[in-house]
Design a protein around this nucleic acid. Structure first.
Lengths: 316, 316
DNA sequence: CGGTACCGCTAAATCCATTTAGTGACTACC
DNA sequence: GGTAGTCACTAAATGGATTTAGCGGTACCG
């Protein structure tokens, strides 16, 4: 059958059949060779023929066909949600990509929710949600109790420890107003835990309005300072920290003397500010590698993150 | 590996065959009805049966299978340089998504280059590069001269016009040092063109180092000001503008009196600065809609972007 | 009445890689 | 000699939707 009379080449695509024909074997054999399928006994001479033909023709397996057969594509989706600004994300993505590449997978990074149509068309091997990943409680998902969650809590401790070392004990944590996402909750929880471990009194949560109203921001900060309840603010991230710094100036206050401010997950703007923002630099690579391995169902291996470091500048 | 449980778990997926059986027709008929394939004569009674069965069973066509058959998935890939671009990107993405949804397509946003494996696994209908519209029908690039380019040039003119209205004639354009990307080149070209149209002398390009070296930044800015060659700076984007502002302070200079500074594509930080950054707000929606239509091979229709607006604050 | 046109629908091919079941040829061992 | 086992490889099924070719029937035209 399949009378070779009319090879209707619709596409230019080189298929496994082309390789098979060129190497004088069947498509099955080609698949076995190229995938190094275990349990097949194929002499080196044949393997060589197949590989040579594949290379010569420039054969690349059709990802879609493979996905149909295998059930999922060799893609992992990373959903970064509304995660904005943190520089550690770059490192995380790079490391994740590298680790996935070792296992013949690719990484697709998306912002926000993953729409069903995308899920359906891409059929990713796994979906990693950054929010879940960083969640403390051993998630249903990729995060494990001693995994990323512990990592985040670790970095929050770094942040608070620095303030404590500077002599601060009455500390607030500034979080973006109106954000009830899991990341905010996680940060507050980690702060509470870290405060306890460091022998500090509980941190006060403070909402900071990141919107267009400077007045609201100033209000929140004024209340903080005038009440004299706190001497330092650990911010949710660098953006929040900058908002706090921006609110200080019109009040005639200045960091770090009137209020020490430390950011988190170093961004690109803190450096430019005056006073320059002291913050915490997080190396995302460890998380990335780990997330990749978990996503593929592999043993994540030992925890290997680089300790977070305080970037000491002027604001704290 | 780590499993005795049968991996042969049949998927619960409802296929077109299930719908066909339930509606007592063939899969072909189901396909015709659900896709409203033109040229088929199917009585309303049958259509109703099919649609009812599909709804009742919760049938969703398998994107991968469809992509295999059709040659491409119903996904359009948008490749952006970086997530941290201007805010207009949000509007652009939203509008693009909406327009694509009208045609039963989904949008996938990626940072940076699209790796070949992803291209291969997703088989997108088209790839849109933010810097240059490209279509991936057969790998050919279909950048349109009056595409995003014309729009960008329009906004650059808005930026320069504002400075001209404030009485400035000697103007520099600050671009990120070390970035030789197409966007930078385009901005400079547009600025040259706009200057000519506005009857201004040519704008001076200035490299601004966004890296960790404040000294370099200050140098560049000092040269600008002390030479007295320019009185205003139009920045490549808000980040560059902030870097310029940050360089002014240690020199004892202040915007807008010593040097007027205007940003571009309003970001989130300019508002916080002192002096607050005057910038240009761009509505990305028009571009998004257009990009979507071009990607699908439809008539893009007339330009429908909202005119860009100057966000007047303090720095210019 | 023969021809044709259309209606309503279906069988089967197609897209491409993977994988199961198996075949023919050969060797090994009792 | 016969059974078993290995080797080297292949045919065919599989995944699910789309689409072409076409079938049996009715209606209409000349």
């Amino acid at each position: 059958m399949a009378s070779g009379a009319s090879p209707r080449r619709r596409t230019e695509r080189v298929t496994i059949r082309d390789v098979a024909d060129a190497a004088h074997v069947s498509p099955a054999t080609v698949s076995f060779v190229l995938n190094e399928t275990p349990g097949q006994t194929i002499p080196e001479a044949t393997r060589e023929r197949v590989r040579y033909a594949a290379t010569r023709l420039g054969y690349v397996p059709h990802g879609v066909a493979r996905a149909l057969r295998e059930g999922t594509s060799r893609i992992v989706l990373l959903s970064v949600g509304t995660f904005r600004g943190g520089n550690s994300l770059d490192g995380l993505v790079d490391a994740m990509r590298a680790e996935l590449a070792l296992h013949d997978h690719a990484l697709l990074v998306m912002t926000g929710e993953v729409p069903r149509e995308v899920l359906d068309a891409v059929a990713p091997r796994a979906v990693v949600d950054l929010a879940q990943l960083t969640q403390d409680d051993d998630g249903t998902v990729v995060g494990t109790a001693d995994g990323a969650g512990a990592g985040l809590s670790f970095h929050t401790r770094t942040q608070l420890r620095y303030l404590a070392e500077q002599g601060h004990t009455r500390i607030a944590m500034a979080v973006p107003a109106g954000d009830d996402g899991p990341l905010v909750a996680a940060r507050l929880a980690h702060a509470a835990q870290a405060a306890q471990e460091l022998g500090l009194p509980p941190v006060t949560p403070v909402d900071v309005d990141l919107g267009d109203s400077p007045l609201t921001r100033c209000d929140a900060v004024r209340r903080l300072v005038s009440a004299g309840t706190v001497t330092a603010v650990a911010a949710y991230d660098d953006d929040v920290a900058l908002a706090v710094l921006a609110a200080l100036a019109p009040l005639g206050l200045r960091a770090p003397d009137d209020l020490a401010v430390i950011g988190f997950d170093e961004g690109r703007h803190g450096r430019l500010w005056s006073p320059a923002l002291t913050t915490v630099r997080i190396d995302g690579a460890g998380y990335g590698r780990r997330a990749a391995r978990v996503a593929l169902g592999l043993d994540p291996g030992p925890w290997d993150h680089t300790p977070s470091a305080v970037v000491r500048r002027e604001s704290a």
